[in-house]
């Protein structure tokens, strides 16, 4: 019986992956239909992240060092956040497109097909922006690592990989929470761009520079500081300088998993409550 169940689950997963592959390829062909738009979409990933880095550069060059963090160290926080964001964009950026999918009527058709809704959402459009996002993130990481000249131990490299992975999972979790709210309450779709702005603008700095209320908010309410700041403090060996104790620099993966659980619950609750309202 268990064997049969396992085979069925395996077959279901294979079928889902085949469907994802087919829709992904169709999505790529759709994006290739207009060559100029295709090229611009790749460029856009670069340009958007460049604006974020430009803002950070103005901050670094015009203002004194931030809370005892050197330019290279702050840049590592930005780079890890960028890379985590790029990984999220590569797999899950279409979660943020749900309001448009609903408006076009495509979301309703996803609900009727025999494949997971989230998988269909994620493969509904080829994430071209990710190419640009990844390029900027990898370049930025390369530049700052050459500035920092760290001694690489397996533990440090492991922390860096974990930092990027947990950052990406956290972004996915928060996007799923937002999607849940949007499905439950039509009209709240601006929360997606709000989330993007808050993580993009405030996840780049050492938490120490912010006043107490924001430090608490970004740690205990909206976990922006766990996307890059806390795990990067562990990579840099600056765990003793972070607010609320060094233990927090090690728990980013755990925080990400807990939030992923919350995101999964919010997504399911949103799907159950979703009714087509018209726009």
């Amino acid at each position: 019986m268990t064997g049969v169940a396992r085979t069925t689950a395996g077959a279901r997963t294979r079928r889902a992956w085949r469907a994802a592959g087919a829709t992904g390829r169709a999505g790529l062909r759709e994006r290739l239909a207009d060559k100029a738009d295709f090229a611009l979409a790749i460029v856009n990933g670069v340009t958007y992240q460049v604006t974020v880095l430009l803002f950070a550069t103005v901050v670094f060059t015009r203002f004194p060092p931030l809370a005892g963090w050197t330019v290279g160290q702050v840049l590592l926080v930005s780079s890890v956040r960028l890379l985590a964001h790029a990984v999220f964009v590569l797999g899950f950026t279409n979660v943020r497109e749900i309001p448009y999918l609903i408006r076009q009527g495509r979301f309703d058709s996803f609900l009727l097909r025999p494949a997971p809704v989230l998988l269909q959402v994620c493969t509904s459009r080829f994430p071209l922006n990710a190419v640009g996002d990844l390029t900027v993130a990898v370049t930025s990481l390369g530049v700052c690592l050459s500035m920092l000249r760290l001694d690489w131990t397996p533990a440090r490299a492991g922390f860096l990989v974990l930092a990027v992975a947990s950052g990406a999972v956290l972004e996915l979790a928060l996007a799923l929470c937002t999607a849940g709210v949007v499905l439950l309450r039509p009209g709240s779709e601006a929360l997606f761009s709000w989330l993007d702005t808050v993580i993009g603008s405030f996840g780049n700095y050492p938490l120490n520079v912010f006043p107490a209320v924001l430090r608490a908010a970004f740690t205990f309410v909206l976990p922006v500081a766990f996307v890059a700041f806390y795990p990067v403090a562990a990579v840099l060996g600056k765990a003793d300088t972070v607010p609320y104790g060094p233990a927090l620099t090690l728990v980013a993966p755990l925080v990400a998993l807990v939030w992923l659980g919350v995101g999964r619950w919010a997504w399911r609750a949103g799907l159950r409550a979703y009714r087509r309202h018209g726009w």
Partner: peptide, 25 residues
Amino acid sequence: GTRLATTGFVVVTQVLLYAELWRAL
């Protein structure tokens, strides 16, 4: 009402967050 409430929330939080960022800088 949700749209108005969301807009109010987004506008107020973004203004306050950026104000705090500049004050910190």
